[in-house]
Design a protein around this nucleic acid. Structure first.
Lengths: 233, 233
DNA sequence: CGTTCGACATACATCGGAGGAATGGCCGGA
DNA sequence: TCCGGCCATTCCTCCGATGTATGTCGAACG
């Protein structure tokens, strides 16, 4: 393995061992390079890799620090994975979302505050007025995110956000007969909101499952309809 | 933003645009650095960050290539997040697992082949004979992983694997009254296997929920029992 | 004719050094 | 006390050069 990769692992190990804790400061490049037995240049590559993963934070003129290491922060760097996934892999992501998000929605049924419900109502009203796909998707994302945030678990929120990024949703919506798909989605959203308003967790789970499964099936159908896309995947 | 970070985004954008596809080869460092308008050294930092995230792959003497970009591959780099999480954040991860894994287990009920069931039986038998915590945890991981893999969704498998790494499980088990906790876990596993053998998806979901929730509660209790740990988190 | 081995070109890996730029703290003046 | 400029520290960027692994191509051998 390359020296730089070893350095990455060593720094990770220092964090796992508690030698470096969230917020603590690393020795300056020159010193740390000496400690780890490599050149400053190679060390910088290791540090850069860790900053890209949100494990370290560098500030020019100040120093390099260990990040808060909050899992939802580290999750963020994953959004790229969802952005590039198409075809079969997008379907895999969507299946995970189908298994996870309805449960989160069910939990939220008991946790949403009246003002949350009102805001969900507003979001749906605005989404009905959306004229472009991008606009509708923005409301769509806001709707689901708002529900999930009621659970109060940032890891859950970030994970569901990552599982279905903006570019991915737009791609899916565009792939289906847009007008029809949008109407269906809107109706599904109404169903979910209705269940949440009546605090019916079981119904909320079911409505969310129906909704996401519908999306899943549009995607699966568009894949098998379109041999090219199915193949290049 | 730093030049290197811009380069990272540019390379990502080239992939998203389809300019670079999985498996395709990048221009050599010197050339690519020129194209992106920075030095070879800074470019290397960008490439190194992307290789650490499994987006690129470099081979000395050959070249740099775009990886397969399989989401489950990109997910792997997340295991560090679970490894460092303790206390409250570990609880957040475990809650996500509680919401997700039972559903996956329910799906698996219809998909597990007879030989899979037999292997699960073997795993449980071996786990009963485990003498150390590490050994038990290894069987524990194998048991859950084996079930989830029946779904045939690599993203799901990797995500559940990441949500609860070896170091994390060991930490949790050690934090509880070990002997008692192990007995309980084993009984839970038997319940889950029984449900799977009788192809009872609903019961499998419930048994898995009970099992993971029990773990969750052990962890939550050990956190509130131990003010020190609760605070330093 | 097929296989093997070695030399060569290619491209990444690592290094040392140097100047630029941003940050934070110190200090003096109002 | 507050404000603004000076200055040390630290990361950022670049250059040039050498080390090392990979793949290729051709010659030698069985």
């Amino acid at each position: 393995m390359a020296l730089t990769d070893e350095a990455i692992d060593k720094i990770k190990a220092m964090i796992l061992d508690g030698e470096l804790t969230p917020g603590s400061r690393l020795p300056k490049e020159e010193i740390l390079a000496g400690q780890l037995g490599l050149s400053r240049n190679s060390l910088r590559e290791a540090v850069r890799a860790l900053t890209a993963m949100r494990i370290l934070i560098t500030r020019q003129g100040d120093g390099t620090y260990v990040s808060s290491l909050e899992p939802h922060l580290l999750l963020e760097s994953l959004s790229f994975a969802a952005d590039v996934s198409q075809g079969r892999t997008a379907l895999q992501l969507l299946q995970v979302r189908r298994l996870l998000e309805p449960q989160a929605t069910g939990l939220a049924a008991a946790l949403l505050m009246p003002e949350d419900l009102q805001e969900l109502r507003d979001i749906l009203d605005r989404s009905r007025a959306a004229t472009t796909v991008e606009e509708f998707v923005a409301h769509d994302i806001a709707f689901h995110l708002r529900i999930v945030e009621a659970v109060g678990n940032p890891v859950l929120s970030m994970l569901l956000r990552v599982l279905s990024t903006r570019t991915q949703r737009v791609r899916i919506v565009r792939g289906s007969r847009t007008r029809h798909a949008l109407d269906n989605a809107h109706q599904d959203h109404e169903q979910i909101l209705g269940a949440l308003q009546s605090r019916d967790a079981l119904l909320a789970v079911s409505a969310a499952t129906v909704h996401i499964t519908a999306v899943e099936q549009w995607l699966a159908a568009s894949l098998s309809d379109d041999p090219l896309r199915a193949i290049d995947d």
